[in-house]
Each structure stands twice: as C-alpha cells, then as structure tokens.
Write a protein that binds this DNA or RNA. Structure first.
Lengths: 224, 224
DNA sequence: GAGACGATGACATTTCGATGACACCCGAGG
DNA sequence: CCTCGGGTGTCATCGAAATGTCATCGTCTC
C-alpha cells in the first residue's frame, strides 16, 4: 500500500514518512501542491496525507477541484486550524479524515491505515458478444458460462476482435495492435486464430475468415 | 438523523447529547451495554457513540459480537486508553472511528457527522479468501487456521492481491502499491511471490502466474 | 483443374517465471 | 563504534511454456 505525503514543514517531512514506513506502507514525499500533482499523475496511491496549508496554496481547495474530476483516493488533512468551521470545511471538500496538529504519530498511523483499508473499488469492464464474455481486468474469458484459458496473444487478438464485433479486421490491423516492433513475417496471425478457435470449441465458430481481406466476428446462431 | 449515546459518566451523559443536539441530531441515551442493546433492538440509529469501558463490560467486545451478526451501523468509540494497540483494537472491532478522552466537543460533532454521512458501510478489517484469513489491523495471516508469519513486503503483496481476488494484478501495479520511490529494477516481485508461496505451503498454491501479464489469486479447490 | 489462400500439425526459438545464492542495508545490542 | 542478523534487493541459471516458423494439406474460386 502506497501513500503520498505532502508536507512543507522540515520536521514533519521526516517524522511523518518514518511513522508510516514503520507501519509497512510505501511512502513518497512531495513538498507542495505542484509536486504533489506531478506525483499523483505519475503514480497511483492508496492514500494521500495533505498538509492543509502549503506554500503554493490551500490543499483543501485543490483536492476539492480534483474530486470534481473524479479523483477518488482517500485524503487525510493535517491542519493547524482549530475552529469547527475550518474542520467541517475539510470534510465537505471530500477529504475522508483530518488530524489537528500537534498529533501523536500513533494516531496518524491508525487513521491512515483505516483510510487505506477503505480504498476505492473499481468495476472491471466486461465485453460480451454472442455467448462469450471477456473480462479485460481479470483477463479471463468465458464461453457459455465456462471458463476458457487463453494465451496472451490469443487474448489480445480476441479482445481486439470483440472490440469491433462484426467488423472486418485485417491481418495488418491485428499485427499493429497485438504485436510490437516490426510485425513478424509469417502467418502468425492465422496460426493464432487457429489456436484461438480451438480454445473456443464450446459452440459454433465465431471467427469468420474473409478471403483475401482478414477476419470478422460473427454470431452464426443469432441469439444469445 | 438519530444517534445513540452509551455513556456511564454523569458529566458526559449531559455534555455529549447536548453537543450532538446542537448539530441537529436526535439523541438517545443509554447507560450501559444492556440498555444499549435494548435501544438498538427497538430503534434504528444512524450512528452509535460508545464509551469504551462501561459498568457491564467492554463495549468493543460487544460491538465485535454484533458485527458478526451483521450489525452495520457506524460506531464512534470514546476511549481513555492511549496506547497504539488499544486504538488499533478499536478499529479491528469494526468501529469506524474513535476519540481519545478528553476531547473537544467540536471534534466529536465533526466525527459523528462524518460517520452519519458515510452511512452503514463497513469494510471488515479481516479479508478472507479460500482458507486464508488476513487481518489488516493486526497484520497477521492464518492459513487453514494456523498462523503464518510473513515479512513486511510479503504481507503487503498478499494484502494487495487479496483486496482484488481473482483479478489480474500486474507487476507494475504491485510495485506501485507496495514499493516506494521509483520501484526497483529487478525481479523483486517474482522473488517476493516465491517467498510468499513458500510461507503459505499448507495447501494448494493460490497465486497463479499469468505469463506475460502478472499474477492472480485463485482458489483451485473451489470450496472453502 | 489450377492457382491462391487459409488451416493446421510439427518443430524451432524465444521469452518468461521460479528459484537458489549472494550482497546490501539497517536496526539492535554489546 | 563495531558486530551481528534479519529482511530485502539483485543476479545468474534453469526449465517450461508461449509463440514464431515452416511445410503440407484442404478448399474455394475462377
């Protein structure tokens, strides 16, 4: 579990990461909003610890903006301000917790762990065609309900075909999307299609060869 | 929004309800676990504020029991104990927040409002998959009932995998979430997986390698 | 029936994961 | 300050699995 700490105070820059690391969290440090943004853009975190006031602005306002764009990672604000209204602001902004300075490191650890545990769950997109279900996140394929295990290339090819159901897909198109570098100089595509077909033996052939053109996904039965 | 306060201290019996009412919450009071149970049975609350120690027992233990039976209402524990392990206990029990006495009433209000807003969603601190139980708070793992001691990194990796059962998890995903800085440039992940597997020798291999893609938790037996 | 193109089985090659051994770092304790 | 040891990162190697290549066969079209 990985945490980003955004803190401009020299002392806390040391203490906070140390505390979190002692709880087996992976910690990165940013010193202002700008560098935090950079880090958030590059990596994905399970939690962010934000000092409320930073040299280049109020982190709360910033997070509020990010939330509007779908930013879903839980945030813990460190704040020196003690008035109730300021604290409430913190929660309104979408932050999931806050801590008033000065605080005990144990308290910080407990709260961060709690936030991390709560992490955002994402639904994997599933593509369906005929009686085939392809789960891009799990990288699994089911035909008529039964699990079919595919090799990497086979999966890539099927994924591409299923993203363009019933459309004609040329060999070079497949090579461009499923192979890297300068595509192979053989009939790999054909071979892969053959292998794919043999794995999907659990119903009619869904992959139609179009002579001289390429391949196309079809649903012979029509139903399902 | 209706809140139940369970408190035996005379002073707090007055102060806590008063504070919450000032935030427009409807408040009921109970003085011990027995009467709290009665109130919970009769009414439905959006939040419960439990003093940790009550004349007829430790409320934490009690809530733990209730959770097992599906009790989902968020709980805020008031505790006088200040050690980290005691605080962690509070979270393990399924309580969603805690406050150390003495506390500012504003803080109490903010936290209760936050819990109420969050609604009855609990993320149990124990994740189960197949015959493995992982306690995120205690950082312990049991396989088929027997305790397995893991190293920090091994635990982090297993935790991440178990939070996404059966999903494909890439190496870079693991590195992003379990390592800091810009991840290492070696096969650490593979090595850690190997070590993890060897610790979990007590049943079939649950970690499936997906060639060229990453790893995935699976349950070969299907049962349990 | 001939040519072209796709299908397929067999085989070669490449890539990738598993693993043992070792090096390094850091914290505990003398 | 030094040593020791556990935990973790790195490397080299091995073997198996995935994939590319080729040759052959089948089949569709003109």
């Amino acid at each position: 579990m990985r945490v980003l700490v955004v803190e401009d105070d020299k002392e806390l820059q040391v203490a906070v990461p140390a505390a979190l690391r002692s709880a087996n969290l992976a910690v990165d440090l940013a010193v202002d909003i700008a560098s935090a943004d950079e880090a958030l853009y590059v990596n994905s975190y399970d939690c962010v610890v934000f000092d409320r006031m930073l040299p280049d602005g109020d982190s709360l306002e910033h997070v509020r903006g990010l939330r509007q764009q779908g930013f879903a990672v839980p945030v813990l604000f460190l704040t020196a301000m003690a008035t109730l209204s300021d604290r409430l602001d913190g929660f309104e902004g979408g932050g999931d917790d806050y801590l008033v300075k000065p605080f005990a490191v144990e308290e910080l650890i407990v709260r961060v762990l709690s936030l991390v545990r709560r992490g955002p769950t994402i639904r994997p997109p599933i593509i369906r065609y005929a009686d085939v279900e392809l789960d891009t996140a799990r990288r699994t394929v089911h035909r008529a309900g039964v699990l079919v295990t595919l090799r990497g290339k086979e999966f890539s090819v099927l994924e591409y075909l299923m993203s363009r159901p019933e459309q004609l897909v040329t060999r070079s198109e497949l090579i461009e999307h499923c192979w890297d570098g300068d595509g192979p100089m053989s009939n790999v595509v054909d071979v892969t299609i053959t292998r794919l077909r043999s794995r999907l033996r659990g119903g009619p052939d869904l992959i139609q060869a179009v002579r001289g053109q390429g391949y196309r996904l079809i649903n012979p039965g029509g139903a399902a």
